[in-house]
Structures are given as structure tokens and as C-alpha cells.
Design a protein around this nucleic acid. Structure first.
Lengths: 338, 338
DNA sequence: ATCGTTGTATTCAACGTTGTAAAGAAGAGC
DNA sequence: GCTCTTCTTTACAACGTTGAATACAACGAT
């Protein structure tokens, strides 16, 4: 008795009705006599029947599953986002399947080319390695919503935060504290590094607006946006003798790494070096000092992304591609105001 | 031209072969002439054909999808675990669908009762609210592997860490530093709180072994295992006048919260209060001070869980239920050895 | 020539659902 | 009693795929 595999057929036989009637009961169709309904429900319970989703999906041409493709789940920003997306999807009766790309071009290529085709009805994608051009070259026609800035990505719906303005605001905040040697951690060179480019642009714009000179030695490049990268970058910055009195890290994770390095070496934060990050991850609220950061409206990102996707799943590609900017907020905490 | 929906049929027509032949090519069946294969492959590419997984699944009776049900993705421990499970599943050619239960009895009940039935081939479940009895009462016959201690859960495969021994070791470590008033943060009362019970048992065992008196005022109860709970618990502990000189937190997240409270109030760590956690999440390695913790072998947990599941998906319920203990390690860091 | 044998391709049915169309039952109105 | 309508239930086909069985060559070996 390993696989009794019960289907509508079995329930129907037991209840003495047709398969379709059982189907009707399961789907809450209105015109079913209370008597039959009860009988069928009893049979369902007795056999412990569960609808076979594969069959249903095949028949209906849709699965009710959407994918969320992010670089890594244990980057807190994406974990928080994932939680919110799953919650938002639930409201639309959608299930979320999470794909980890590891930020590798290869895996992102796969995702974009639709290797989950026919399994998912839509895709929310936060690309790291793919350029706008590569994304535009996509052939698969599964509805997709992109997260994160991609210049000229007119080929898909798009949820963005005004990275330039936000980075500028964060940097200006540091300047407003009287800091003159404001460093930036998180510059990146490769083609697809939009986030880095935009935040750097905001940083530079702020320096100019504040009448501060831009100094190449204050801009530190990193490989990835992890704690370890921030820690290393900070170490390099300090060793270089650039003597920063403030640092804007392009994300919170690097800021936490940088913070660790600073404290390890006996610097006081914000006394000697003020520190600001980007993302508002929960860790930043519990470190010592707590972390000043740019807080993008993640809840909005998640819910708008799901909305867009749900909409496009109905309307198909007939609608113009849309782009939405969600709001952000500068949260001043101890790392700049202790 | 909204939904051209290409299937084997269309490819077959274009290539001038039968549907089955196309299927054979897609599945890498050996006996296909190079000529036909090339022709079919050309047709596939031209039409941009993708196999319909729902149909395939329906036919084969399996989906290749397993679910991982955890309380919350943005609890770093689970995020890290999720990443490892996804990676392990990939090796078995399985896709992971992640379910967030929020730790609510209702959602956990749903998961356990198999509301994803027929969509998933197996389930890796880390329950929080359900008792062993409730889990044992499960009717759904989808293979399941449980993560985390559940006394007498002989009904499903089971991956555990020796929580009692680990908690004891952590506490003994604190005692070995000469601390006499070692507090515990993370006690819980409800029926299903196995983790809490076991770690508490380990803590008490260590006190006894070290010849220290157990003091109720040093044991703090919490609602959940988040940073905020740890912070509040620590505050209560300090306010109560219990004057601890060390604290063992039942997870790292609470330890980070507790750390925040301690530093905020000017305590030196580990000078005045030493601090140890459990889980070895990455945050703990970058705080200041870095966090002493018990590091369960998460990689093993993930890979064994997937292995067990894959095995049971083949063998069904014929095999005896198994239980595996994975190893752990005490990592001494600054919060106890600064 | 005949008989396997092997390799290649096809036909057919089935997986479990649900939409469509239509059949049967039960009143309402004449 | 008869038709017309409304409610309830049914039979059938189809979704796209693949396993089983089978047809058809081509080739050696008899």
C-alpha cells in the first residue's frame, strides 16, 4: 500500500457521482445540491483526496507559481525582500519559488532565458551580472518584473529606487556633519554594475554640491557587496593613509564589515569616522553603534512587483512596459549622530 | 500573437517527424539518427520550444520539486540553511520551493497536512509550533524530513543536533572563564518548544556539573527568538538586579540583541558580562565584539536532509524512519575571550 | 532466401483535470 | 398534458507529455 494515488475518479466512484461533479464540488461551483455536495465531501475526506496540481495546471495553462530570482538568500536585503514578496504573492494566491543565481552571469542567463518555462507564470528578477542589453535580448515570453536600476531597460516592467538621489542625500548628510574627507566603499567596474555606478554618481554629485573635492583615493572598489568586502575595503582605505572622516558604504552589509574594521583598529564611530550605509537591513539596527542608512521602501518594492506581475499575467505583453520608483528615507542613527 | 504556446506537436510538424521522436530528442534518448536529431534540434530552436513541466510531471507522477518549510526567511539561520538546501537539492536535480510558516500553528498545520500535495515530491520541515504528536498525526504521505529535535518523532526522518550537549558545552565554557552567575536567555513554555527545553536542560546540566547553583532569576523567558526579544530579555535581566556575569543566549540573534542592550548601557563585553550564542550566523562574526557561539554543521544538515528525502522519494515508506545527529562545534570568539 | 537482431521511428493510451455542450430532472405557465 | 425555463448532473474532449508496444528497415548469420 505504497501509492494509492487517489484522483477525482476514485472519489466519484465512492460518492456515486460523475467525475465532473466532484470537480465542481472541489472548485466550489454553485449549482450542486447540498445533498450531493455533502456526499462528495464525505468521500473526499474518507479517501483523503488532494487535487493534482500538475494536472490542473496542465489543463488551465497556468501554474499559480511565480519565481523570485535573487543573488543570494543569505544576504539580508534579499532575505527581507523575499519574505515580503512571498507575503505579497499570497494575497494574489500565488506561490513563490525562489531561485538563487549567486550573481553569476551563467545562472542569470538561464533564469532570463526561461529555464523554468511553463513551470512559472511569471518572474521577479533582481539581476546582478546581466547588462540591460542582455536582458533585452531575452526570448522567453514569461512575464517578468525587474528589480533594481537598469538604464534603458524598456523591455520589461521595472521597479527602481532613485539610487542617485538617495546616495546623494546620504553623502550630503555626512557633509552636513562637517566631514570633509568622505570616502565611498562599493565602486565596481564591470559592465552590469548599475547599482554601483548610480550610487557613485550620487556620491560625487553630493561632494560637488557640498563644495568638497573629489579624491580618487577615497573611492574604494570591491568585488562583491558582502561584509567581508566592506571589512577589507575599509582596511585598505585606512592603510592607504587617505584618512577619511566619514564613509558612505553602498550597502549596509559592507558598512557592517567596515564598522568591524574601524572598531577593531580602535577608531571611534562616529567620533573619528562617521558611517552610513544603504538598504536598512535589520542587523544595522542592532549593531553598536546603530547604522545610519538609506531605507528603501521594501514593502512597496515587493508588493508593486507582485502587482505588476499579476497584472501582466492577465494582460500579456499588450500593455506598455512600466517603471515605478518607490520612495526611500534617510534614517539617521548612531553611526553618524552618536 | 500573444500566446503561441508551442508544444512537441508543433516541433514535430516542423521537423517532419513524430511527436515521440521529438520527445526522444529532448530526453536524450540514444537511438536517434544524427540527421533526425539535428533536424529536430533546429526546429526546437526555431520555435523556441520548452517542455511543459506540468504535462511531464503529470505523466511521470513526480515534479522534481521539494519544499522547504521554515518559520521565516529573514532569520539568518534559516536563510543560511535555505541557501545550503537549495544548493544540495541542485545536486540531486531537485528544485526547492520555500514556504514560510511564520511559526504559526495554522500554517504549519497546513504544511504538514500537505496543502502542496502533488506539487511537491517531498518536504523538509523545520516546525516551531507543532508538537511531536501533531506531526505524528499527519495523514499526507508525501515524504518528509524533519529538522530540529522532536522527542519521539518516530514517524518521519529526522535531522538533529545534540542540543543538550551543545548547550552544556557553551555554558561550561562560560563557567570555565570563572563566571559564577551565568544567565540563560530563551526559555519558552509552550508545548512545542523543544529547542528551548533542550537547550535549557543543557544549561542546567552545565551549572550542576560546574557546581554552580541554579537561580530562577537568571533564566529569562522570551516570546520569539529575534533580536528584539534578546534585547528586551537582557534589559529585564539587568533591571531585575540578578547581576549576571555571563549570558548564554539560545540563539545568536537574541545574543546580538542582548549585546546591543549591554553596550547601550555601558557594560563591557566580555569584561563585565561574557556572552555566548547558538547557530553561528554570519552576523555574529562581524559584530563587535565577535560572538562566541555553537556552530552546528549546517552544510551537513542541509545535505543529509536532501539525501534522506531523495532516498525516501525512491523507496517510499518501506524504510524504517531514520534519525541523524550532525556535529557541532564551539567557536570561542571575542564575546567571551576579549 | 530466411531468420533473427539491432537500430530507428511511429502509434496509442494514459496521467488527472476542467471547459463545453448537452442530457436529465423539476417546476412554472399555459 | 405540454412546452419553456431553470437547475443539476453528465459525457466527452483536450491540455502536453511519455511508456509500452509495435512497425519497419537494414544487416549478419544461418
Amino acid at each position: 500500500m505504497d501509492k494509492p494515488r487517489v484522483g477525482l475518479k476514485d472519489v466519484a466512484r465512492l460518492a456515486g457521482v460523475s467525475v465532473k461533479t466532484v470537480s465542481n464540488v472541489v472548485n466550489g461551483y454553485v449549482h450542486v445540491t447540498p445533498a450531493t455536495r455533502t456526499r462528495v465531501e464525505a468521500a473526499i475526506k474518507e479517501l483523503n483526496y488532494r487535487p493534482n496540481l500538475s494536472a490542473r495546471n496542465l489543463r488551465q495553462g497556468r501554474t499559480g507559481i511565480i519565481a523570485l530570482a535573487v543573488p543570494e538568500l543569505d544576504i539580508p536585503y534579499f532575505a527581507e525582500l523575499a519574505r515580503l514578496v512571498v507575503a505579497a504573492a499570497e494575497k494574489h494566491e500565488l506561490t513563490v519559488l525562489i531561485d538563487q543565481t549567486g550573481g553569476s552571469r551563467e545562472r542569470e542567463q538561464l533564469v532570463s532565458e526561461g529555464f523554468r518555462a511553463h513551470l512559472i507564470d511569471g518572474l521577479i528578477f533582481s539581476p546582478l551580472a546581466l547588462t540591460s542589453e542582455e536582458l533585452a535580448a531575452r526570448v522567453d515570453d514569461t512575464p517578468m518584473v525587474l528589480l533594481g536600476e537598469r538604464v534603458s531597460a524598456g523591455t520589461a516592467d521595472h521597479i527602481v529606487v532613485d539610487n542617485v538621489a538617495a546616495a546623494k542625500e546620504a553623502t550630503l548628510h555626512l557633509a552636513s556633519l562637517g566631514r570633509r574627507r568622505i570616502a565611498a566603499i562599493g565602486a565596481q567596474d564591470f559592465a552590469a554594475a548599475e547599482t554601483s555606478r548610480l550610487r557613485l554618481a550620487g556620491y560625487l554629485a553630493a561632494l560637488e554640491a557640498a563644495g568638497l573635492p573629489a579624491d580618487d583615493r577615497l573611492v574604494v572598489h570591491v568585488e562583491a557587496y558582502h561584509r567581508a568586502d566592506g571589512a577589507r575595503a575599509m582596511a585598505r582605505l585606512l592603510d592607504s593613509g587617505a584618512a577619511p572622516d566619514a564613509v558612505f558604504c553602498f550597502n549596509d552589509l559592507m558598512a557592517l564589515g567596515a564598522l568591524r574594521t574601524l572598531l577593531e583598529r580602535g577608531y571611534s564611530v562616529p567620533g573619528q569616522v562617521a558611517l552610513a550605509g544603504f538598504d536598512d537591513i535589520e542587523d544595522g539596527r542592532y549593531g553598536t553603534p546603530t547604522l545610519t542608512t538609506i531605507s528603501p521602501d521594501k514593502r512597496a518594492i515587493a508588493s508593486r512587483a507582485v502587482e505588476f506581475l499579476a497584472d501582466r499575467m492577465v494582460k500579456g505583453s499588450r500593455v506598455e512596459t512600466r517603471e515605478i520608483r518607490v520612495s526611500y528615507e534617510l534614517l539617521v542613527r548612531e553611526s553618524t549622530s552618536g
